[in-house]
């Protein structure tokens, strides 16, 4: 199992402690911390909502409006209203995960490593997208949903099924490959020239983290609107 050993050997995969039969590593602690941070921010932003927003509520509303406008342009107002919460959650969570790799000593300090730089996390997210796509499709169209696998011509069925199965694979590998590669390159450059030069790579990482979180959300939105759309 050389593939598996590579993923386990990457920097944050050491087991920190055990809870019963489950081994806990740095990715999991960081993920829990990110979840708590997002939840606390959400509670603080929504604690006393005013008509004229200020402070954190202002930031949250601006972000929400931006996401909503973007999703509306992708899947229409109805789709954005219905699936926006799920897709927006993906975006915010992945964005925080990507940016946690920019924190000082991330990946080397025990308990701190970017969760999206391991395949387990990204595969989990992609599998959620896979099941959501088909469940939403069945909810929208009933049993007619399975008809679209036979749509252009019936003998395309094996190809259509392979296409559906490749989607979560490429979705998870894209996010994992980008973030893992970025982290590795930054670490290597830090090893060569510790002062100054890694900042350039980190600045690039800020942009790439945003783009990758956006790409994940766009692709999930396209898959979901493809399954729930009017075309079949």
């Amino acid at each position: 199992m050389p593939l598996f050993s590579v993923f386990m050997a990457s920097s944050g995969g050491h087991v920190l402690f055990n809870i019963g039969p489950f081994a806990v590593n740095s990715y999991m602690t960081t993920m829990v911390a990110i979840t708590i941070v997002i939840a606390v921010m959400g509670i603080l932003a929504g604690r006393n909502i005013k008509t004229v927003p200020s402070g954190l509520q202002n930031v949250a509303e601006a972000l929400l409006e931006m996401l909503n406008n973007f999703l509306t342009s992708l899947m229409g107002p109805k789709g954005a209203r219905q699936y926006g919460p799920l897709l927006g959650t993906f975006f915010i969570f992945i964005l925080f995960c990507n940016y946690s790799g920019l924190l000082p000593m991330s990946g080397h300090l025990p308990g701190l490593a970017a969760p999206t730089s391991t395949l387990s996390v990204t595969a989990g997210l992609a599998i959620i997208v896979f099941f959501c796509t088909h469940i939403f499709g069945i909810k929208e169209h009933g049993m007619h949903y399975f008809g679209h696998f036979l749509k252009p011509v019936a003998f395309m069925l094996p190809l259509m099924i392979i296409e559906e199965l490749v989607r979560p694979l490429s979705l998870s590998l894209r996010l994992y490959g980008n973030i893992f590669g970025e982290e590795t390159v930054t670490a290597q450059i830090f090893g060569l020239v510790p002062l100054g030069v890694p900042i350039v790579m980190q600045a690039l990482s800020v942009l790439m983290g945003l783009v990758q979180a956006g790409v994940f959300m766009i692709l999930a939105a396209v898959y979901i609107s493809g399954a729930t759309g009017e075309s079949h």
């Binding site: 050389p2 593939l3 590579v6 342009s73 992708l74 490429s170 590998l173 894209r174 490959g177 980008n178 590669g181 783009v211 956006g214 790409v215 766009i218 692709l219 396209v222």
Partner: peptide, 29 residues
């Protein structure tokens, strides 16, 4: 705006090919 979204989508699909190469590289490492 429209062009940018479609471009990012197209770039993401092309990038998948490189990522498959990375996967193969990991597998034969």
């Amino acid at each position: 705006g429209n062009i940018r979204t479609s471009m990012i989508l197209a770039l993401a699909f092309m990038e998948a090919l490189t990522i498959y190469g990375l996967l193969i590289a990991f597998m034969i490492m």
